[in-house]
């Protein structure tokens, strides 16, 4: 019974992983890609590790899977936050249909606010 529940959770995690990577390919901008990829892949990987914990129980394998789950759940959003901040400092602007850019307002960067349509990847058709 634990095995069936564990494989169902692993299947849900695999679907999230696949959809996150499809979003990584299909989305038009760095920030939308970051949103799709990191959220979906973090939840998918955590689901896979939790499924391994459900199947094997609290043995050595299950406890290591639990430690790895907690570690991924803490570090992956932190890395995504750092990458978003680095991309903004690098000079990537938000998509031309975006409504607001709060970080640019906060650091008083007039070039980012005024040139909202200056997307470096606007020629991409994907």
């Amino acid at each position: 019974m634990n095995e069936v529940i564990g494989f169902i959770i692993i299947a849900v995690g695999l679907v999230f992983d696949l959809f996150g990577c499809i979003g990584l390919v299909r989305m038009p901008n760095v920030y939308t890609r970051l949103q799709a990829a990191t959220k979906c892949v973090t939840l998918g990987t955590c689901s896979i590790l939790f499924g391994v914990l459900c199947i094997t129980g609290f043995g050595p394998t299950g406890v290591k899977a639990l430690v790895c789950l907690v570690f991924v759940a803490i570090t992956s959003p932190t890395a995504a936050h750092a990458i978003a901040r680095g991309s903004h400092k690098f000079g990537i602007h938000v998509h031309k249909d975006a409504v607001t850019d709060k970080y640019a307002e906060e650091i008083d960067d007039p070039s980012v606010v005024s040139s909202g349509s200056n997307d470096q990847e606007e020629g991409e058709t994907l």
């Binding site: 890609r33 990191t38 991924v72 995504a80």
Partner: peptide, 14 residues
């Protein structure tokens, strides 16, 4: 761009 590659590298690691 370089940030798009960085996002993909982070995702691949996870």
């Amino acid at each position: 761009t370089a940030p798009a590659r960085t996002v993909a590298i982070d995702t691949l690691g996870t």
